Simulated assay, not measured.
Amino acid sequence: MSFVKEFKEFAMRGNVIDMAVGVVIGAAFGKIISSLVDDIIMPLVGVATGGINFTDYKFVIQQAVIDGTTQEVLKPEVTLNWGSWIQTIVDFFIVALCIFIAIKGINQLKRKEEKAPAPDPEPTKEEVLLTEIRDLLKEKN
């Protein structure tokens, strides 16, 4: 089997394509949630905490070196951006919550489908004919 043919069989499997679709949708969902956190939730948290923006918090390990005459940065400061890390943790928990809510809703829909009884099947032509014969025999008696 040639390499190209083998790769084509691998790439065209249903589960590989489903996984690719899931990754693309997951990336788009991640952007939506990041926007929700950055643009809606964190400003509200900032107002509630007196205007704190977590992404601004950092530990400076080494100060920047600036040229005294030109004010040009010769060496940028080295920092630990712990506020961005807090922001990422908040993003994660909100994404996890949204996924939990979505999965819970999907599971409830599946349970409703399972509980709904299947409709009675339509009678066959033979059953309809036998019913008519029975009804005619009842009328004669």
Rank of each mutant, 00 (worst) to 15 (best):
Val4Pro: 01
Val4Gln: 12
Lys5Arg: 15
Glu6Thr: 15
Phe7Met: 09
Phe7Asp: 04
Lys8Phe: 05
Met12Ala: 02
Val16Asn: 06
Ala20Lys: 10
Val23Cys: 03
Gly26Tyr: 02
Ala27Asp: 05
Ala28Arg: 02
Phe29Tyr: 10
Lys31Asn: 02
Ser35Gln: 13
Ser35Val: 14
Ser35Tyr: 13
Asp38Val: 01
Ile40Lys: 14
Ile41Asn: 05
Met42Ser: 12
Pro43Thr: 15
Val45Asn: 03
Thr49Asn: 01
Gly50Ser: 11
Gly51Phe: 10
Lys58Ala: 10
Phe59Ala: 08
Val60Gly: 08
Gln62Met: 14
Gly68Ser: 02
Gly68Asp: 04
Gly68Met: 03
Gln71Glu: 08
Val73Met: 07
Val78Phe: 08
Asn81Gln: 09
Trp82Cys: 04
Trp85Val: 14
Gln87His: 12
Thr88Met: 07
Ile89Trp: 13
Phe93Glu: 01
Val95Met: 14
Val95Gly: 07
Cys98Thr: 13
Ile99Trp: 04
Ile99Glu: 02
Phe100Glu: 00
Ile101Glu: 01
Ala102Gln: 02
Ile106Glu: 04
Arg111Glu: 09
Ala116Glu: 13
Pro117Asp: 11
Lys125Asn: 06
Leu129Asn: 09
Leu129Ser: 05
Leu129Thr: 14
Ile133Tyr: 08
Leu137Pro: 00
Leu137Ser: 09
